[in-house]
């Protein structure tokens, strides 16, 4: 790997591919492009990218499957681009290991912000320390305790486990199925009632502790995400 991060842009529409290529190059990245599943696999194998921007609607195959195949041997983060109708594919791709997604139509500023965030996270060590701090929120894994601005918040074991998974994901979206499997077990992947109820209580407690309610972002139809700067109540702040 030399110099600037290499981004592989995968989209079957040439004008979009070209516009993203120019924009990302101007933003200081090296860019490779591919227009199909086959091209993507070849390009990624020849020069492994640092990040993949993947449009799920490809002419020659299932985007979610491509995502799973890449994930087998490529550690680089994958940013999905998906249409509203491809909800099911998007969730499958996230479950298969994609790191984030953008829904079409998206603003270029938003895309650049996601790219920066993903590269930053991929560059830093995974947060496996015993104490994880996200914004004003501190989660102590061995002690199973949570604090906002140093003041402890009492959570039930399930609420703690939910917050732990969100914190470990560090800004990556977690699908409902992922959370249910990790916190309750593989047999509970469809019990969304459980998840909704406990997430509601978790948010209530964090809010009572002084954390903004939208620190945990609802990705309707997909899952949840702990915002990078939890507590600051900011979104990516890019105008559309």
């Amino acid at each position: 790997m030399s110099g600037e991060p290499l981004i592989l842009v995968v989209d079957d529409e040439r004008p979009i591919r070209r516009a993203l290529e120019v924009t990302l190059t101007k933003a200081g990245y090296r860019v490779a492009t591919a227009g199909s599943s086959a091209e993507t696999l070849t390009a990624a194998a020849l020069s492994p990218p640092d990040l993949v921007i993947l449009d799920l609607m490809l002419p020659d195959g299932d985007g979610a499957e491509l995502c799973a195949e890449l994930r087998d041997w490529l550690a680089a983060p994958i940013l999905l681009i998906s249409a509203v109708e491809a909800e099911g594919e998007k969730i499958r791709a996230l479950d298969a290991g994609a790191d984030d997604y953008l829904t079409k139509p998206f603003a270029v500023g938003e895309l650049l912000a996601r790219v920066r965030a993903l590269l930053r996270r991929a560059g830093g060590a995974a947060p496996r320390d015993s104490l994880i701090e996200v914004g004003r929120l501190a989660v102590d894994l061995p002690r199973r305790s949570v604090a906002v601005d140093g003041a402890e918040i009492h959570l039930t074991p399930t609420e703690f486990d939910l917050l732990k998974e969100l914190t470990l994901a560090a800004g990556r979206p977690l699908t409902h199925q992922m959370m249910l499997r990790k916190v309750w077990g593989p047999g509970y992947a469809r019990e969304t009632q459980l998840l909704r109820t406990h997430m509601g209580r978790l948010r209530d407690k964090l809010e009572a502790g002084g954390l903004a309610r939208d620190s945990i972002e609802t990705l309707t139809g997909v899952g949840y995400r702990l915002r990078d700067g939890a507590g600051a109540s900011t979104s990516y702040g890019i105008s559309r």
């Binding site: 529409e13 516009a19 101007k26 139509p105 998206f106 270029v108 500023g109 895309l111």
Partner: peptide
């Protein structure tokens, strides 16, 4: 409808991406 929305949306996405590139 999925095909139609793809066809309608793609040019708009291309315009947005191209215009975004001009911010530099």
């Amino acid at each position: 409808l999925r095909a139609v929305s793809h066809d309608l949306r793609s040019p708009l996405q291309a315009i947005a991406a191209a215009a975004g590139g001009l911010h530099y």
